[in-house]
Design a protein around this nucleic acid. Structure first.
Lengths: 110, 110
DNA sequence: AGATTAGGTTAGTTGACTCTTACGTAAGAC
DNA sequence: GTCTTACGTAAGAGTCAACTAACCTAATCT
């Protein structure tokens, strides 16, 4: 998972992933989306993403078609989920606390 | 979100977040968990996390208590969710394709 | 007031990334 | 076969992030 999270920490690599999220695209078409950087730079980013398991590569003649691999992000997702579970637990605890306080109020009124 | 994802790209910072995920902890107690790095280094990590919105800081006398802020991770989560939505769509498309193929088989049998 | 405790800040070094330029390679096209 | 197209790889330069050592600050205790 370290590789995956490092890979998506770079904005250009995130953009690449989004480009090939729903459709397969050749390396050249991907590079063409980046006006501020050369093609070799994108090629290197593609390598990082592929080695992190975030990209599937398929060859078609002279072209190489890339597609995002969501499974590669599973580790990152699990890391995040921990915190959401905890937040739910917090909300639950808070709700209970408030429930008790309401009950106390009712007791005082009656 | 760039700050958040860069923050959690570092293994030590992820460990810090996990330490204060479910309980508030003073800086010293956090630093004590890391044998291979000095206290100032942890202090710097705490700053990065706080500035990325991933950490809440509360002062108690001379101590500073830290706690993870799950909300700070929301942007990252949204980024990931895109890909999971897409994976679901893929599975749906595949299921339909298979359904059609089964129907064809039945037709051939009859 | 002075000493102690908890923790943040600064300066400087080192190593790791990312980029560009130049070059290499494999598949078609002519 | 050689030209072109589509990409990848290598080497070198510049930038940036993380670490340590030394120092600073604020609260508390004696």
């Amino acid at each position: 998972m370290q590789d995956a999270i490092e890979a998506i920490a770079d904005p250009r690599r995130r953009r690449i992933l989004e480009l090939v999220r729903a459709e397969e695209l050749p390396a050249g078409a991907i590079a063409a989306q980046f006006g501020d950087v050369t093609r070799p730079a994108i090629s290197q980013h593609l390598r990082v993403l592929r080695e992190a398991g975030l990209l599937a590569e398929r060859r078609d003649g002279v072209r190489r078609l890339y597609r995002a691999r969501a499974e590669g992000l599973e580790g990152v997702r699990e890391f995040l989920d921990q915190f959401w579970d905890e937040r739910l637990a917090d909300l639950r605890r808070e709700a209970e606390r408030e429930e008790r306080s309401k009950r106390r109020d009712r007791g005082r009124d009656n």
